[in-house]
């Protein structure tokens, strides 16, 4: 395939035709990679919705150098030969991203202290990075009761940012999607058909793709803060069709607190695991241990200052969150 040239924040690179701006940026790596809250490379059709990955195209292509009139979603805009893109180099992008983060927090409960996702939450990382731990929003946030969707998964709709990733897991990994989005706008919610349980060999993957703490593992809830457990890469000979058997065991001493699939440097799972591996194999003897797991560099947990951002957030919470 033909290689084409693209420049992002002044760094030039060559990528295959049909590559998105986001993936081109990821191939360069570092600070110039736009954050992505809804795009997920292993889920077809994902992206375009959260708008955190907006960038500015200052030159469309070599042939047609006109800039694009609006900021574009880098996850769903393909590069053209000679395209010039600004991410953090553009004040417009920085401003727009701040706006988006603020919007994402409008209805977010900011209940990090009691959220199982704290420490590995993309929204927490995002707001930390953009210096926003609150919004100017002063009204009551939308409220839903947490529900159990099946034996293994808990849904906290309050925290959902409607990224649609879990729907794509339902469509693309399982034989039949058992949950969906009902309603529109800010009154939309993820739901199952009449609280039917989501119960399918691969349904547990919705937990891993959820960027926030909306879908969490019921078999792990409140056992420990993520950053107190030690992640180990492990695998097992799994007989489930299409299961990679490659996992991360989250250990406390010799106890397996939780099993997840492995995430790459972009915080994405490329090889999914089945529910048997995830929920039923909680004995170290079930697994072949490979060694300590590498955790995404950008995440709050891995920066060795877990306590710092979290307490910083508690403070913000005290000042802003009104009792509801």
């Amino acid at each position: 395939m033909a290689l084409i040239k693209v420049t992002i924040d002044g760094i030039e690179t060559q990528v295959e035709e049909g590559t998105s701006i986001l993936n081109a940026a990821r191939s360069i790596g570092g600070k110039i990679v736009p954050p992505a809250m809804c795009y997920y490379s292993s889920l077809k059709g994902s992206g375009g919705k959260c708008r955190t990955c907006l960038v500015k195209v200052t030159q469309g292509s070599e042939k047609d150098p006109r800039p694009m009139p609006k900021l574009v979603a880098s996850c769903s805009t393909n590069v053209m030969d000679g395209m010039v893109v600004e991410n953090t180099a553009s004040q417009d992008v920085i401003d727009a991203r701040k706006s988006i983060v603020e919007m994402l927090l409008v209805n977010h409960p900011l209940d990090c202290p009691v959220c199982d996702q704290a420490g590995e939450c993309s929204l927490q990382d995002l707001s930390y990075e953009h210096g926003l731990s609150t919004t100017r929003y002063e009204f009551e946030r939308r409220k839903f009761d947490p529900i159990d969707i099946g034996d293994h998964i808990k849904l906290h709709m309050n925290r959902c940012i409607l990224c649609y990733r879990c729907l794509m897991v339902g469509d693309q990994l399982t034989n039949e999607r058992e949950h969906g989005i009902i309603g529109r706008g800010d009154h939309a919610e993820i739901s199952t058909y009449l609280e039917k349980s989501v119960d399918n060999e691969f349904s547990g993957n919705v937990i891993d793709v959820c960027p926030v703490g909306a879908l969490t593992d019921r078999t792990f809830r409140f056992k420990s803060r993520v950053w107190f457990s030690k992640p180990l890469n492990a695998h097992r000979e799994c007989t489930t069709d299409k299961c990679s058997g490659k996992s991360v065991l989250w250990m406390s001493d010799n106890d397996v607190l939780r099993v997840t699939a492995r995430k790459d440097q972009n915080n994405e799972v490329k090889e999914f695991i089945c529910n048997t591996c995830r929920f039923d194999k909680k004995d170290v003897k079930d697994w072949v241990i490979e060694g300590p797991a590498h955790i995404s560099r950008d995440s709050v947990i891995s920066q060795n200052h877990y306590e710092l951002p979290i307490t910083h957030k508690y403070k913000a919470l005290e000042n802003t969150a009104k009792p509801q």
């Binding site: 708008r51 409607l162 939309a188």
Partner: peptide
């Protein structure tokens, strides 16, 4: 507009309600 937003994009979904 708040009632009719499809709710895909965060600025429209949350901004109209705000």
């Amino acid at each position: 507009y708040n009632h009719e937003s499809c709710g895909q994009c965060s600025p429209c979904r949350e901004g109209t309600g705000w």
